[in-house]
Amino acid sequence: MTAEPSTPDSRVRQAGYGLSAAAAVSILFLLAPSNDAVRLIQIGAVAAVILLILAVLGALSARTGKAALYLATGLLALAAAVLQLIQFGRDTNWIGGNGSTVAWLAGLGIGFAALWYVSHSARRSD
């Protein structure tokens, strides 16, 4: 049996699943003790829900290969990152995170947006 060759589509799909898995695994930081050695990212209850939604949407995007779904997932993550950036360190902090939460959500948002770009440009050139 020979391995299936890696196509641009399958690589985008793998990256989509990878980012979704990263979002899902990072929810575990909710349970991490609050010391610097373990808690790399500050995740509160609201952030955990957002990450769960991102993980599900991201996995759906990868499964269906729909460019618009990648874009929606990326925009949701980026919107959450901007909201967190505006609010953290202040009295009102809906997501309950800090700068590390901003960076993590921004990374996921950039990642999914990049996958939208690849899928979208591949469709246009077909």
Partner: peptide, 15 residues
């Protein structure tokens, strides 16, 4: 190294 910076941005607290 990316995670190092992510964690580092956690203790830079505005305003």
């Amino acid at each position: 190294i990316g995670l190092l910076w992510i964690q580092n941005s956690g203790w830079k607290s505005p305003p």
